[in-house]
Design a protein around this nucleic acid. Structure first.
Lengths: 177, 177
DNA sequence: TAAAAATAATTACAATCTAGAATGATTGTC
DNA sequence: GACAATCATTCTAGATTGTAATTATTTTTA
């Protein structure tokens, strides 16, 4: 592709048309990092927090189903579930009808953890949105939601960028512009 | 948003207060992934594209200076610069005054590459902003810029989240909410 | 019903990547 | 001139991930 003819580029007239995409990537990385810190304070990694939340929202799913929603490989979930199960936060329940898979459920302790993570998420949201007025927040929230919907991103699902065809993964590296 | 059954919450009254932070992370990951695909088509990884752009913007900097701006370890730049230098896109010039460091400059081929990457970035921007009207784009761009400024993010720099104190890096994994 | 294919979870292995500490060359300071 | 500091580089250990192989169970096929 690389369509865009755009031969004429001026010297450096300040902010360019290339703005929204970069700002989204920049702020997204920042927000994810900040949340990572809060999650760490609560004793969880972001993947763990995401997994707990997904099970909380829809209990009883198999690991395959969850892996599909997360865009992760099923084998990646094994260690994740192991760790949280050993900490007594969730449990694998045998499915009596199909004993190949497990149904994942939160324990009481897991629900308590979700409460803590929920508070952390609320504090995180408040901190991120802090520079904006309530009216601006509503405005921004609406625009972002429309943008996400327009690109087919599902409301509750955070698709870590995965399996790109390119010669190198995207990685959180130096980034783009 | 980690809803947490908190006391007063109704069934499922749609979008919650915890919105902006998650949408930013979600859209940011999406935008970064999309850009990664375009960069790959042009023959570059996102880190490479970011490095080229930084040198293009401010030629003659040392690797340490660039590493500081990118939030990367200096040792990480070595391989990156090596690869681009072997492809003839940039060159290490000896600093006659201080022969410890190199001054990084683009070659003509490097500038051509920047043109291609600039077109890719423009196409990317257009694709990301596509769902919004011109007026909405201006609105969103302004809100995001204010948000970024409010959090001390510098205009052209993309701070990949780095060295978190927590037990586990954030990583692009299953994500949060 | 027996055999073969498919599916879920797991394990094993290889490839990649990164952080961090050493190394060598050069410069600045006292 | 000796010592500390700086820049680029190399090296090594550790972590992370993707792919393929393994085991148990179910479904399909002959």
């Amino acid at each position: 592709m690389l369509t865009v003819a755009a031969p004429g580029r001026r010297a450096a007239p300040g902010p360019k048309e290339t703005e929204i995409a970069f700002l989204l990537a920049q702020l997204g990385a920042f927000a994810a990092g900040q949340f990572g810190e809060r999650a760490a304070e609560a004793g969880f990694t972001p993947p763990e927090a995401g997994l707990l939340r997904l099970i909380s929202r829809a209990p009883g799913q198999s690991q395959q189903q969850i892996a599909a929603q997360l865009g992760a490989r099923p084998s990646r979930l094994v260690a994740l579930v192991d760790g949280l199960e050993q900490r007594g936060l969730l449990e694998r329940r045998r499915n009596t009808e199909d004993r190949r898979n497990y149904a994942l459920h939160l324990t009481d302790a897991g629900r308590d953890a979700m409460t803590v993570l929920g508070q952390a998420a609320a504090a995180h949201e408040a901190a991120i949105a802090a520079p904006l007025s309530p009216a601006e927040r509503r405005q921004l929230s609406g625009l972002l939601a429309r943008l996400a919907a327009g690109h087919g991103l599902r409301p509750g699902i955070h698709p870590g960028y995965r399996h790109l065809p390119g010669p190198d993964g995207p990685g959180p590296g130096p980034g783009r512009d």
